[in-house]
Lab assay of single mutants.
Amino acid sequence: HNLTITQGKLFFHYNPKLCLSEIHKMEEVSGTKGRQERNDIALKTNGDQASCENELLKFSYIRTSFDKILLRWEPYWPPDFRDLLGFMLFYKEAPYQNVTEFDGQDACGSNSWTVVDIDPPLRSNDPKSQNHPGWLMRGLKPWTQYAIFVKTLVTFSDERRTYGAKSDIIYVQTDATNPSVPLDPISVSNSSSQIILKWKPPSDPNGNITHYLVFWERQAEDSELFELDYCLKGLKLPSRTWSPPFESEDSQKHNQSEYEDSAGECCSCPKTDSQILKELEESSFRKTFEDYLHNVVFVPRKTSSGTGAEDPRPSRKRRSLGDVGNVTVAVPTVAAFPNTSSTSVPTSPEEHRPFEKVVNKESLVISGLRHFTGYRIELQACNQDTPEERCSVAAYVSARTMPEAKADDIVGPVTHEIFENNVVHLMWQEPKEPNGLIVLYEVSYRRYGDEELHLCVSRKHFALERGCRLRGLSPGNYSVRIRATSLAGNGSWTEPTYFYVTDYLDVPSNIA
């Protein structure tokens, strides 16, 4: 807008934040220059609390790290170098490059900038070799853009010569660093050979998330399962459950009422301010606690030095998902009996873990797994792929695949051998790939016309006998059925096997 004052003059007093240069501009645009008398524009009460600059400061050096910015700028000295009290560095987070010096300023003089007072450097006698002032900004957020400017702080001049310097606002972004852990990993099994893994992005990506790394490792069953005799009275049979499938998407929606109208769909109840505040506090606490764990609990591995020492970490090797089922080394339970199943799973520490690289999504279907087997899954978020990966501390989750139908069934015939004193040795093959492992066998036998009897055969007993022995049988026709019990439950009964026990007292003698 054009402003013209045809008559009258300007009068400025007691404006401590208004620089004289701005008042002189007002004289020019209003056409009143030359009308004012000496005392109409006070030299001592206008701009006496402001830094009124008329020179431009330029930054000469900028260096960044993930949490620091090192700045240096060209030296500046007023005509009387004693008038320079120091520099004021202003900075704040700036997602967009549209910041002005006066953003967030209120009537009390406060604003949204963080201000650092910096002492002037030592003055050199040689004007050509003056030290460049600077400042190291610490405690910054990774991968965050900051708006920065600097200006001088000078003393009051009796001659009211307006001098000083100020830089333009520059924008500097800190470097990326390792992201925080992925949030809320959930693993479920939808079949006997697959596990579905879902997660949420890290709360602090500290860069642009480029991919996720998912490692999985087959877990050995508890050692007590191999040692305890679950045929003993009072000892509860062990059981394991597989990871249940995901709930429906509708039930997972946030901010939804727990109660549904019987007449149909209901609208979600909005969260109160107290609920939102509580969630923010919980989120802040979780982030602080995660940072504490990362800094205190997890110790970084030592990389190899120039002395030739090897990095103890196993090298990563990509495998196809079809090879995942046989990740671990199978060892027989008892070496003397080769027909026992290889369900003991000690994992070799030198073995390469299978892994998958996930790009542009937060889910993965891990296939080719062994049925009813526990897996430990390790999830890392990465925001750099080359020249070397920059990934987060791992988040861990466990899951067990679903049982395989008929995996616990005894394959092959049940054979028998009759000894003296009416002892019958029953023999059968253990299931080759049971659900988890076989903890015991149930032997059901009966003599024709009598009630059915049951015998429990422990895992250890089966390994020693290759089956079991029935003792003290009365003469007669017998039928026997056997079924295995694994961590997933009972298998199917075998087809009945028949044998006849004679009275050993009636056996004919070869003595003449």
Score class of each variant (00 low, 15 high):
G207D: 01
N208Y: 10
I209E: 11
T210W: 15
V214H: 01
F215N: 07
D222M: 10
E227Q: 09
D229E: 08
Y230K: 03
L232M: 08
G234Y: 06
G234T: 09
K236L: 09
T241W: 14
W242L: 06
P244M: 14
S248C: 06
D250L: 12
Q252I: 09
H254L: 12
S262A: 14
E265Q: 13
C267R: 00
C269W: 02
P270C: 03
T272D: 06
D273L: 10
L277K: 14
E279T: 05
L280P: 05
E282N: 04
R286N: 02
T288R: 07
Y292H: 04
N295T: 04
K302N: 14
S304N: 14
S315V: 09
R316W: 15
R318E: 06
D323E: 12
D323N: 08
V329R: 06
V329H: 11
V334I: 03
F337L: 12
F337M: 12
N339W: 07
T343D: 03
T343S: 09
T343Y: 07
T343M: 09
T343K: 12
V345M: 10
T347L: 12
E351T: 13
E351V: 11
P354R: 09
E356A: 09
K357A: 15
L364V: 07
L364E: 15
S367F: 05
L369F: 09
R370K: 13
R370I: 14
F372I: 04
T373G: 06
I377Y: 10
I377W: 05
N383G: 14
N383K: 01
D385Y: 09
A394E: 10
S398W: 13
S398V: 07
A399D: 01
A399H: 02
A399S: 11
A399L: 02
R400Y: 05
T401D: 00
D408H: 01
I410P: 13
G412Q: 12
H416M: 14
I418Q: 03
I418N: 12
N421M: 09
V423G: 15
H425G: 06
P431W: 00
I438C: 07
I438V: 10
Y441N: 01
Y441Q: 02
E442I: 06
V457F: 12
R459F: 10
K460R: 13
K460I: 11
E465C: 10
G467M: 12
L470E: 01
S474I: 10
S474E: 11
G476T: 01
G476N: 01
V480I: 15
R481Q: 12
I482K: 01
S486N: 02
L487H: 00
W493A: 01
T494Y: 04
E495P: 07
P496Y: 08
Y500W: 14
V501W: 03
T502Q: 06
L505G: 10
N510I: 15
